[in-house]
Amino acid sequence: MGDLNQAMIEKYRTSFLKEVEANVEEGEWVKMCMQCGVCSGSCPLGKFWNHPPQEIFMMIRAGKREEVLTSDAMWMCTSCYNCVVRCPREVPITHIMHGLAHYAKRLGLTPKNQPTAEFAQRFWNNLLKKGRVNELKLGVSLYFMNGIGPGVKTAIKMAPVGIGMQRTQRMSAMELFGGHAIKDLKGFHAIMQKAQELEALRIAQYSVAPRPTA
């Protein structure tokens, strides 16, 4: 991952904006931002962003590569889409935040112990395994993501919630043993393997030539 980061730094030495446009989901929209700040004011977790979306967009244009990609900011996105529907220039801000978060993760630049980055990765791994999310395994693995000690503490704090869910049959201990799965796992895995390969190939190509914009 470090190698890819280095390759990208060398390739896009003169323009972080071009790097984002070529490699980040919906990145070609970044230059459309007119710095009005409606997104930042509309964000439900706005006060927790070290750089709100509007600022991130300007930082990308100013070439602040490391500050943006190592930022905690885009991991605060709750996917509420407030910013998307309010943006006067229809910038798909939510998707760009997801795209930046994914790209930072791909380059190995995510801040250590960022809880949403951890959760989001576990969610993905969990669904890829059986084609469907196993809520119980996902929850339990999340409690223990910072080690056994904090995990036990979280599990104890969460126990009443779990008991409520179990009592109302909205959680099943049986999910720890196998659990729900799709039938054609082989086909599913082949599809996802190919999609991941194609994407990796495209990004490797970008380090040679930028993606043509539609």
Partner: peptide, 19 residues
């Protein structure tokens, strides 16, 4: 038949756009 997970709005850390 045999539907799979949609990745919701949180699958993006591990899952890129195409997957």
């Amino acid at each position: 038949p045999d539907w799979n997970c949609c990745a919701a709005s949180i699958g993006y850390a591990g899952g890129g756009e195409l997957p």
